[in-house]
């Protein structure tokens, strides 16, 4: 992984990311206590398929491509996420491994939230954890719907 932790005081705050807007302040603080700011240059990989998924990513700036690597053919990007989006839910479900590669398409700034800290926050504040999941589900749903329409190849003749 080429994204190096930034040691200067973090300028990105979990509470500033749209995903957390309106959630309970104490929960946000708890959930974000294990957050690390990670910045990437274009071409850097955020994670690779098969890696242990131990972080929940908040994208603040830039663009990240979710790719499928194919042995005999070029990589295919199946989705891009950008500023204001979140990335990844493999940390939440077994076997806790990434299903795709994630590559920065351009200079990208993120906060990576530690999965264990997040889950502890859910345990400590189940109601807020529930609200968190209510926000994550539509993201998953949208991507599922997108994927479904994409396989229809609606632009094909």
């Amino acid at each position: 992984m080429s994204g190096a932790p930034v040691h200067a005081p973090p300028v990105l705050r979990v509470a500033d990311h749209p995903f957390f807007h309106g959630l309970d302040e104490r929960f946000v603080q708890l959930a974000g206590s294990g957050a690390t700011e990670r910045s990437f240059e274009a071409g850097d990989m955020l994670f690779l398929e098969g890696d242990i998924a131990s972080e929940f990513w908040l994208v603040f700036q830039g663009k990240v491509a979710l790719e499928i690597a194919q042995p005999d053919r070029p990589h295919v990007t199946i989705q891009t996420v950008g500023s204001g989006d979140v990335l990844g839910w493999s940390w939440l479900v077994p076997p806790h491994r990434w299903r795709f590669d994630a590559r920065a398409v351009k200079a990208t700034r993120t906060l990576a939230l530690d999965a264990k800290t997040l889950k502890d926050a859910f345990e400590a504040r189940p109601e807020d954890g529930y609200r968190f999941l209510l926000r994550l589900l539509p993201v998953i749903g949208d991507r599922l719907e997108n994927a479904r329409v994409q396989i229809l190849d609606i632009h094909g003749v």
């Binding site: 663009k63 295919v76 990007t77 997108n146």
Partner: peptide, 23 residues
């Protein structure tokens, strides 16, 4: 501009047009 699928030469968005509406 968004496309359904792309290779690494593409620096734009990948996904449905509906996914671009929030932006």
């Amino acid at each position: 501009v968004t496309v359904d699928a792309a290779g690494r030469e593409w620096y734009g968005d990948v996904g449905l047009v509906t996914a671009r509406i929030p932006d």
